[in-house]
Design a binder for these strands. Structure first.
Length: 640
DNA sequence: TTAGGGTTAG
């Protein structure tokens, strides 16, 4: 126990001595002021040391002497209850506050409301708020913040309107709370205007809330505008803007802002590092991620940060590192398990993912909808039809998780890949939720693998009904026609694309070498070493051909002939990136390539052969999964 | 007495 000096107690609780002299006394009891003073001193000591039970006893004793504790005394006791998480004692104080028909001051009711809010009893907070004779800005702000935090956005905004009608002016506390309740740009702009009119736009809390909400709505230019206008920034504001860019998939800008943050002499804390890890994850920057890991060690008990680290290693294709972090983690939650399960599944270790799911259940952690998605993904990508069905059908019964569109999507993928296209279509029609573009595109992908042209056309038409601008559909359809040598239909698809202004996403691959990112796009010769890369690639292809490699021209979209067809395959961006990696990275280093569209069959064969012939490990991450190439094989088992 | 930032899928 801490030793407390009397001087400190007097300074902190000087008001109590005053209270013992000024508060109304019971008429039937004469006050023994010396007894009250000593009890008050005992009460103050207990509150200061958070000895709740002793403080409650002291409060009882004080009131038995006929002294009613004042508002500040009660509020100290409520702080004590909050610090101890003592709900029942909080309720007892509540009863004391209102005993003998006493009408407490607005200040004290606010404290009680705040106590119920912090304990999570919103209804009780609301009841107290309703019976208040007078409500000040703190009363309104406390209740608005409570609804904002509970994600009851409409209610929070409704109370702001009621507050204004009541003639109470919101302050910076109110605005920073209510901003989080904005789920649309219209509300946000209105509030931003009100903040400006009230002259509160310079408050750092309000600014960080504005940055955060603009970011969450994807309005990064507005978020950056608010940030740039700030004269004085603190670390939370920096974290808000960095997090905003990281969460919206602009890792480059997040990293750039992080550099500026360091230049402005701010240190990275857990929140900063989490966002930076997310940026590394999005850009597949494993080496930078490893450097961030060194800083994460300072916060090795931080669960959120460790989870971000797990995700970074999984998504950057280094499952070994993820496993080391996961094993060392003292605390694991459903996100840690789900990240690892999905990470294993995406990296092609389906059986291991399912084993980990069993371990998770043994550990007592309860799976959520995302965990099950990872499990179904593992089954789907390994062609485990029976296991997938089992998990899908039991998820509601065992874990109370209602299948959502994404879960159906995994099963449609599972059935489709296994060639059970009719069953996949039947399931789409039986879904409890409406199929969306992704559902139909999943079926379309399966049609392409199994060359079912008629069903592909049906699926594509469903997609085009929902989204006539979807470029992916045109590409897949064009692919199917090309593989069936239906060049007239290919031309028709391309004509429709031109008419609608739909453009195919250009394939791009990235590779990190010496902490620099190198990007490769078909037909773009701007890379300074492109001549050397092309030369190296031609030599490699020649050697591969001598070893039996035949370019698979079925993946060529255009209706080209002979060598022209081969050429368009030769310069696929992932091939350029792999060759560049071979040129620049030592043999023991893994060649890690990130791609914006899915890997084609020819590049897949190429990577397998290169891995064998050059004795290298190649990892390619496409938007859906990872391919680990080693010894002439891929972790996906050629099923993707 | 009231307020701000970070993690899993899609």
């Amino acid at each position: 126990m801490r030793a407390v000096s009397k001087r400190l107690l007097r300074r902190r609780f000087s008001h109590l001595a005053v209270a013992s002299r000024t508060e109304p006394k019971s008429s039937s009891l004469s006050l023994n002021s010396s007894l009250a003073s000593s009890l008050i001193e005992e009460f103050a000591r207990c509150c200061y040391q958070r000895e709740l039970r002793a403080a409650m006893r002291a409060m009882d004793a004080i009131e038995r002497t006929g002294v009613r504790a004042d508002s500040i005394t009660y509020s100290e006791l409520i702080k004590c209850c909050l610090a101890r998480g003592a709900v029942e004692e909080g309720r007892i104080v509540h009863r004391h506050v209102f005993s003998n028909g006493y009408q407490p001051k607005t200040f004290l009711i606010n404290v009680l409301i705040n106590m119920y809010v912090k304990f999570g009893f919103l209804e009780e907070a609301q009841k107290l708020f309703d019976i208040m004779p007078e409500r000040n800005v703190v009363s309104w702000t406390t209740i608005i913040a409570a609804y904002s935090n509970a994600k009851l956005n409409e209610r929070a905004l409704e109370f702001l309107v009621l507050m204004l009608r009541d003639g109470v002016m919101p302050n910076m506390f109110t605005y920073s709370s209510v901003l989080r309740a904005c789920d649309g740009l219209w509300n946000l702009r209105q509030l931003h205007c009100s903040i400006f009119k009230a002259g509160l736009e310079s408050d750092v809390f309000v600014r960080s809330a504005l940055i955060d909400v603009y970011s969450k709505l994807g309005e990064l230019r507005n978020a950056l505008g608010v940030f740039n206008e700030m004269v004085t920034r603190d670390s939370v504001v920096w974290n808000s803007i960095i997090g905003g860019f990281a969460q919206n998939g602009d890792g480059y800008e997040a990293l750039n802002l992080f550099k500026n943050m360091k230049r402005a002499a701010f240190h990275a804390d857990q929140s900063t590092l989490t966002s930076i890890l997310r940026a590394c994850t999005g850009l597949a920057l494993l080496e930078l991620g490893r450097q961030v890991h060194v800083h994460v060690l300072k916060f090795d008990q931080d669960l959120i940060l460790n989870n971000a680290l797990l995700d970074m290693y999984c998504k950057c294709g280094s499952f070994e590192d993820a496993n080391i972090v996961f094993t060392k983690m003292v605390e694991k939650d459903v996100i840690s398990w789900s990240t690892m399960i999905a990470g294993l599944a995406q990296n092609g270790f389906s059986q291991e993912a399912l084993k980990l799911f069993e371990n998770m259940k043994v550990s007592g952690s309860k799976p959520n909808n995302i965990t099950i998605l990872g499990v179904l993904f593992a089954c789907s990508h390994a062609g485990l039809v029976e296991e997938g069905w089992h998990y899908f059908q039991s998820m509601k019964q065992l874990y109370g998780i209602v299948p959502e569109r994404e879960h159906y999507g995994c099963i449609i993928d599972l059935l489709g890949r296994a060639g059970k296209l009719d069953e996949a279509v039947r399931l789409i029609h039986e879904m409890e939720c409406e199929p969306d573009v992704i559902t139909w595109r999943t079926l379309l992908g399966a049609c392409r693998v199994h060359k079912n042209v008629d069903l592909a056309i049906y699926a594509a038409k469903q997609i085009q009904k929902l989204d006539p601008e979807d470029a992916g559909t045109y590409i897949l359809l064009s692919n199917i026609y090309a593989n069936s040598h239906r060049w007239d239909d290919v031309a028709e698809v391309r004509r429709s694309m031109r008419l609608r202004g739909v453009r195919k996403e250009t394939g791009c691959s990235w590779i990190e070498v010496d902490m620099q990112i190198h990007a490769f796009v078909v037909g773009d010769n701007s890379h300074p070493q492109m001549e050397e890369i092309n030369k190296h690639l031609s030599q490699l292809i020649q050697r591969l051909k001598e070893a039996g490699y035949v370019p698979d021209t079925n993946f060529v979209l255009q209706d080209l002939e002979g060598e022209q067809r081969e050429d368009s395959l030769r310069y696929h961006s992932e091939k350029l990136a792999i060759v560049f990696g071979m040129m620049r990275l030592p043999k023991e280093k893994i060649i890690r390539v990130r791609k914006n569209i899915r890997i084609c069959g020819d590049c897949h064969v190429f990577a397998k052969l290169i891995a064998k012939m050059e004795e290298r490990i190649v990892v390619i991450r496409d938007p859906v999964r990872y391919h680990h190439f080693q010894n002439g094989a891929c972790s996906c088992g050629d099923y993707w």
